[in-house]
């Protein structure tokens, strides 16, 4: 296949950027999208030009490193990660626009590479269960009903890729935050810190200048791990509950 890739090139964080078109030949349908970028980069290197910078590591859809906006869709047309997107989803001669995640909270470092450390700070503010090493009781002493375990697991599969933020018209991190809160707050082990967790994580989310949620649902469409919209409802519920209790106007 022959494709034209229009890619956002930006030398550095403060430098201005713009779209540059590259023609890439002999792309095979069973190549992954990142392998196509590899191919382009090998050409560029051969031509002595600066290759396109993009994040990737596992190339299996699990580490959450990769992620670009392809034709206006985070991770492209398929419900998967950029590294697991295969070229067979495009047709010969297509022109493909490739842009970095766009959000105030995710400043561009170079080309398609952005800084997602805001996500780490959200987790640091409460996305954990306090269980110092060695303090754990026998694993089977707290049975967890399978449905609860499955729900927690579903939310725990979030790979922190940031596609939800990239896709949300408001650049909101609600889905990411909601997934972690759901994972930990559903589990009996997470109950003791239930309120402080959600309060701190939402506070941090706001401080990191993500937008708010207007229930657009774009994030869910882009999410490669199928984190459901209900998780956002759950986040709101958990948050408002913690605030009501803080204001002393709710039993619990």
């Amino acid at each position: 296949m022959k494709l034209t890739l229009r890619i956002w090139r930006q030398p550095g964080p403060d430098a201005p950027g713009h779209m540059v078109a590259y023609a890439v030949d002999d792309i095979r349908p069973d190549m992954s999208f990142v392998e196509t970028l590899d191919l382009l980069n090998q050409d560029l290197i051969a031509r002595g030009e600066d290759p396109v910078a993009f994040d990737n590591d596992c190339r299996e859809g699990i580490c959450g490193s990769c992620g670009v906006v392809i034709n206006g869709r985070a991770h492209g047309p398929e419900p998967t990660t950029t590294c697991q997107l295969h070229m067979r989803t495009f047709t010969d001669g297509d022109v493909i626009d490739i842009e970095p995640w766009r959000a105030k909270a995710f400043p561009v470092i170079k080309d398609l590479v952005v800084n997602r450390s805001a996500f780490d700070r959200i987790i640091q503010s409460g996305g954990y269960i306090t269980a110092p090493t060695g303090s754990a009781p026998e694993a089977n002493s707290t049975p967890v009903p399978k449905p609860v375990a499955d729900l927690a697991f579903l939310n725990a599969t979030c790979i922190g890729c940031g596609a939800c933020v990239a896709a949300c018209p408001n650049g909101s991190a609600m889905l990411f935050t909601a997934a972690k809160v759901a994972h930990l707050n559903f589990l009996p082990q997470g109950r003791p810190e239930r309120e402080s967790r959600v309060r701190r994580m939402v506070e941090t989310m706001d401080e990191e200048s993500f937008g708010g949620c207007t229930n657009t649902g774009e994030c869910v469409v882009a999410c490669p791990k199928g984190i459901p919209l209900e998780s956002i409802a759950n986040l709101n519920r958990e948050y408002l509950r913690s605030r009501r209790r803080r204001a002393g106007i709710a039993p619990g």
């Binding site: 956002w8 906006v69 626009d97 959000a103 018209p169 650049g171 937008g211």
Partner: peptide
Amino acid sequence: RDRAARPIRYQHHP
């Protein structure tokens, strides 16, 4: 706030 959260819009409109 929401508009400010995406200072640079996408070239290819979502």
